[in-house]
Design a protein around this nucleic acid. Structure first.
Length: 505
RNA sequence: UCCCCCUUAGCUCAGUUGGUUAGAGCGGUUGACUGUUAAUCAAUAGGUCCUUGGUUCGAGCCCAAGAGGGGGAGCCA
């Protein structure tokens, strides 16, 4: 490893070596992001990271090194005479190395600074015959199969950095507004949340579970003494927070055991659910719109390097699409457009009118019929958002029969105070409502919809004791990730996607 | 869960009406060359054609079942 041993033939070389070893010991590692924008030019520095490419020459070799701190690589310049051949041979794509040397102004074009290597230690080899991430284009499908290595690509690492920033922006938004972050349970004893199939949580032996006399499983002997599942929503518990702390939000994992095989669904995803006392439906919409705009702005303000890369990537993808499927705006343009424009707000009933008057309806292009009372299909939502209004749309006051039991019943007796925000290309990104705060009305609705009161006695007591108007909504974190990264498949915006038949890694 | 499509070299794909030694680009390896930018040029290695069964003189190609992947729909965030 002590590479200068061949030159170690007189006293000056000896001191040179001693000084170098001292430097290597004392120079602390700098992140590449910092080195690239730093004032450390002409200083001894250390960088550690993974080799992206190596361009070998007779006299000089160039290494593009990335440590994940930024999408940009630092260029390592290696004087072939300073390092042993064996070391250079082992510096392959994917290898992890530690480089000591002097940061200098670049002599070449394409980068402002570069690192002149004086010593390179190989921390981890990567055999090029078998390392799957070679410097060439890989499909996203292939990368999904190597989810443990894919964050070493430009695309996935950019997405993961944005993911962090988006999560941070969400916490910042709510914190700045005086909301409290509430941790609602992951294991839930209630199966009445009404948001789809659930994953069972049990410690019983699946082969020989204890049985009741009638042959059914005796869950009294299970860990919690009752049937338990992974949560499908933290909303009901968040309402407890709203009715005590005023304004709260949850941000945690959510599980749906639906057999959904689409580019917009995961079995395990993250959801943000604010819940606010004294907010009516309009207050709710105002908050949701401000929230969405705020977090998108944060990404625009703090992730431009990564956004520019993804913008270019998306533009390249667009070129392969047929003309009519192409986006009129690029990724960054779309984000700016959403931040700068008012969302279109209209009632469900008006939306049905718009659809009935639409060209595709008149030409019978819709697969599903349009009439008051239907749940809007993807094709209908897409028409409203992408063709008619060409911007995010907030739909309100849906028929009560297609919405959940807890939504505020409107005076007309037909609709409830729901609001969904529809985004271009993604569909429903937010679903929310004002909650029914009247105990009797809520009980009646639960009875009509076969929601067992016994399970939700505590939820009802929020209305029994000091009830108040309140509202809230849920935002699918990964759906927002789709929007701010321009990616098309939700499996590419979460580190380790869980979908039907897939829980690898 | 339903509909459609795909599965051939490490990756992305081509492969004619079923016919003899299965191809390309990228990547790898070797060499040349160069302050290079996913460098360039040359040579070279690399295949259980997803699996099982069937039809046929003969199957990468046709048929059936299964497995895996993708797109769309439903459910939803």
């Amino acid at each position: 490893m002590f590479i200068l041993s061949s030159n170690f033939n007189n006293l000056s070389h000896f001191y040179w070596l001693v000084n170098l070893l001292k430097l290597i010991e004392t120079v602390k590692r700098s992140k590449i992001k910092y080195l690239l924008q730093s004032d450390l030019v002409d200083n001894q520095v250390n960088a550690k990271g993974w080799v992206r490419t190596k361009r070998e020459g007779k006299n000089v070799t160039f290494i593009a090194l990335n440590d994940g701190s930024t999408i940009k690589n630092i260029q390592i310049v290696v004087d072939m005479e300073k390092l042993p051949e064996a070391t250079i041979k082992d510096i392959n794509t994917g290898a992890c190395i530690s480089v000591n040397g002097v940061l200098v102004k670049s002599q070449g074009k394409g980068q402002s600074v570069e690192l002149i290597a004086e010593h390179i230690e190989i921390l981890g080899l990567a055999d090029p015959e078998v390392y799957p991430l070679q410097p060439k284009k890989h499909s996203l499908e292939f990368l999904r199969e190597i989810a443990h290595l894919r964050p070493r690509t430009n695309t996935i690492s950019a997405i993961m950095r944005i993911r962090h920033n988006l999560a941070f922006a969400i916490h910042k938004f709510f914190n700045d507004k005086g909301f409290f972050y509430m941790h609602t349970p992951i294991v839930t004893g209630s199966d009445a949340e009404g948001a789809g199939e659930m994953f069972r949580v049990s410690t019983l032996d699946p082969k020989t579970p204890p049985l009741n006399e009638d042959g059914s499983v005796n869950y009294k002997e299970d860990f919690f003494g009752k049937e338990t599942n992974l949560t499908v929503s933290g909303q009901l518990e968040a309402e407890v927070g709203a009715m005590s702390l005023g304004e709260v939000y949850t941000f945690g994992p959510t599980f749906r055991a639906e057999n959904s095989n689409t580019s917009r669904h995961l079995a395990e995803f993250w959801m943000i659910e604010p819940e606010m006392a004294f907010y009516d439906l309009n207050d709710n919409m105002d908050l949701a719109e401000e929230f969405v705009k705020s977090i998108i702005s944060y990404i625009l303000d703090n992730c431009m390097d990564d956004l520019e890369f993804l913008d270019k990537r998306a533009a390249d993808e667009e070129k392969n699409k047929p003309q009519n499927e192409r986006n009129e705006l690029g990724l960054i343009e779309r984000m700016k457009f959403v931040v700068e424009n008012e969302f279109e707000r209209l009632e469900y009933t008006e939306a049905i009118q718009v659809l009935l008057n639409s060209k595709p309806h008149k030409k019978k292009k819709f697969k599903f019929p349009v009439e008051w009372g239907i749940d809007l299909q993807s094709e209908h939502e897409r028409y409203l958002v992408e063709k008619h209004y060409k911007k995010p749309v907030i739909l309100t006051n849906y028929p009560k029969d297609i919405k959940a039991f807890y939504m505020k019943q409107n005076p007309d007796g037909k609709t409830v105070g729901a609001m969904d925000i529809l985004f271009p290309g993604i569909g429903e990104i937010i679903g929310g409502s004002q909650r029914e705060e009247n105990l009797e009305k809520l009980k009646t609705r639960m009875e009509e919809m076969d929601v067992p009161e016994s399970e939700l006695w505590w939820y009802l007591e929020l209305r029994k004791f000091g009830t108040a108007p309140h509202s809230g909504f849920g935002l699918g974190f990964e759906r927002m990730m789709l929007f701010v990264t321009g990616m098309g498949n939700i499996r590419d915006v979460i580190p380790f996607p869980r979908t039907p038949q897939n829980a690898e890694f």
